[in-house]
Design a protein around this nucleic acid. Structure first.
Ligand SMILES: [Mn+2]
Ligand SMILES: [Mn+2]
Ligand SMILES: [Zn+2]
Ligand SMILES: [Zn+2]
Lengths: 150, 150
DNA sequence: ATTGACAATGAAAATCATTATCAATAATAG
DNA sequence: CTATTATTGATAATGATTTTCATTGTCAAT
């Protein structure tokens, strides 16, 4: 593979590789945070000061559609995005969110057990409710240690 | 108990029972749908045509804070609300959402197993990440049978 | 019954995230 | 290099939610 996997996916889907798209990918690649469109936009200006917020939104939307990025909604009134690390062995994880400071923690503990149950549930729900289930989210909301102290 | 539980809760928290608050409660009590603030507002006008959308938002927010109502975000760009049926034996459930038509299904199948695992996970996460976990959401996203046909 | 303190309300304006429009620009096939 | 189209960025528009503020309702104490 001459190109990184996401680049393949872009081309295969008939899209061009442009500077804004590279910039967005790089920002996401270099963080473990869950960035909002605005966050990404601000960072992108440091690299290419002519990128527009609209393009950031469009890019994130495109990336989400072709499976390069995951979009999350943690109930803040704005979306957050995360790069998919490896499309083969999906590095699936779940989230813990601090309701006060909005810190977001990825966790994979117990994931085997969790996923086993989730697969089972998914199958049963598919049958009972006639849904073709595509993905799921598991979010735990609580207070981080810092915020508990307050 | 002379009052319904939610009324107690309102008073205990030092709030008054007003007409808009009753109207909102009644709307939520008489549906199994997941209504948006706007939905509730439209319905409320049929009962009391002088209620303001602002008040509906304020009321829902208050109800959520004192634990009468649950607010959900299914990634539509607007929140949806659901009355908590019984605060004692929490009638907890999880959701399946059609990504196309946005139909939302409550399910409680497998909930015992699910909740058992979730409790276990919750405990482990609490310790490892020092979070005091308050609640959680489990959402399955997919396509309902109607939308698959298209 | 009246009053005062303060909670609650509704209308309107403000804010914030996201989307639509459209003319200008950049990417690639030939 | 040039033509064809995808992509972009500035701007305006939208939709949900929040803020502001003057008015109204509630309730306990006169
Ligand atoms: Mn994550
Ligand atoms: Mn529900
Ligand atoms: Zn926190
Ligand atoms: Zn559907």
């Amino acid at each position: 593979m001459r190109y990184p996997w996401w680049q393949h996916r872009l081309y295969k889907a008939g899209y061009r590789l442009t500077n804004p798209r590279q910039v967005v990918i790089n920002i996401l690649k270099n963080t473990d945070k869950h960035l909002s469109a605005e966050d990404i936009y601000v960072d992108s200006l440091k690299i290419n000061s002519s990128i527009g917020l609209t393009t950031v939104y469009r890019t994130l939307d495109l990336f989400q559609q072709i499976g390069i990025v995951q979009k999350f909604d943690f109930g803040e009134g704005k979306a957050r995005y995360e790069l998919i690390k490896n499309p083969i062995k999906k590095e699936h994880h779940h989230h813990i969110i601090c309701v006060k400071c909005k810190e977001i923690v990825d966790y994979t503990d117990f994931l085997n057990e969790e996923l086993e149950l989730i697969n089972k549930t998914e199958k049963a729900l598919s049958e009972k409710y006639q849904f073709k289930i595509l993905h799921h989210t598991v979010h735990f909301y609580g207070m981080c240690s810092k915020c508990q102290a307050t």
